[in-house]
């Protein structure tokens, strides 16, 4: 065997071994990054956030719903009308009136410096037949204090309550909203007819869906 021939055979063996190693490495994805123990970190991102506050009464708390955390109108509005970074605080209190909201809800809303406030009051007063003038005075105070925070304020009127007439309250809400620079969200047509009785709004998931749609349309500047 000459030296040249002796060289060729081991050279082929070496080339074969090297080729196999490279092939195995390539096939098994040698170049793959495979996340490390800590994953990748690129940059620091601090997003600006805004706050959305809701002022209301029992229906806004979610009374009567099976899954209030998913179905209440205020939460639907938060999810659908605002970016993910928006903070949501539901200040509503059961059986709240405009007068009690001034004490129990408005101070919290003011403290949070909200960008947007949705107000839905008046049903309790309509059921209790509170004098409209007193209601209008209290609602005006609520809206003015909320507007003073610099927030956009959206105020819903009272839907059909069956035998209880809410027209006078709705007229007051429209007047006060216009005076205070708030946006009126018309809810007075929301109702379902049950049997032979008067049309009535039912705060079930469909009712909350309808309220949410009206507020979302107003907040986004669309016609409902």
């Amino acid at each position: 065997m000459t030296g040249r021939r002796a060289f060729r055979v081991p050279f082929r063996v070496a080339a074969y071994v090297a080729g196999c190693l490279v092939a195995v490495t390539q096939l098994s994805g040698c170049g793959g990054s495979g996340h490390g123990a800590l994953g990748g970190q690129a940059h620091v991102t601090v997003q600006p956030s805004q706050t959305f506050v809701v002022v209301g009464s029992a229906a806004t708390v979610g009374d009567g719903l099976d899954q209030p955390m998913q179905q209440v109108w205020a939460r639907l509005v938060w999810r659908e009308a605002f970016p993910r970074s928006t903070i949501f605080v539901n200040a509503a209190v059961r059986d709240a009136t405009a007068a009690s909201a001034l004490q129990d809800q408005v101070p919290l809303a003011a403290e949070l410096h909200p960008a947007t406030v949705a107000v839905w009051l008046g049903s309790q007063e309509a059921f209790d037949r509170v004098p409209v003038d007193g209601f209008a005075t209290d609602l005006r105070a609520v809206l003015e204090r909320l507007r003073a925070t610099g927030a956009r304020v959206f105020v819903g009127d009272v839907p059909q309550l069956g035998a209880v007439r809410a027209d006078a309250y709705n007229a007051a809400i429209a007047r006060v909203a216009a005076d205070a620079g708030a946006t009126l969200v018309p809810l007075h047509d929301l109702s379902v007819r049950r049997g032979d009785g008067d049309p009535v709004f039912v705060p079930n998931p469909a009712g909350h869906r309808a309220i949410a749609d009206a507020f979302v349309a107003a907040i986004k500047g669309r016609a409902p």
């Binding site: 800590l38 990748g40 620091v44």
Partner: peptide, 24 residues
């Protein structure tokens, strides 16, 4: 503080860590 993830006792199984300072 996720700006120094190597200093944390955290190990990623799937996905990644939140970006430092992210509120979402």
């Amino acid at each position: 503080d996720f700006s120094h993830p190597g200093d944390l006792p955290v190990s990623v199984l799937v996905g990644r860590l939140p970006h430092a300072g992210s509120l979402t």
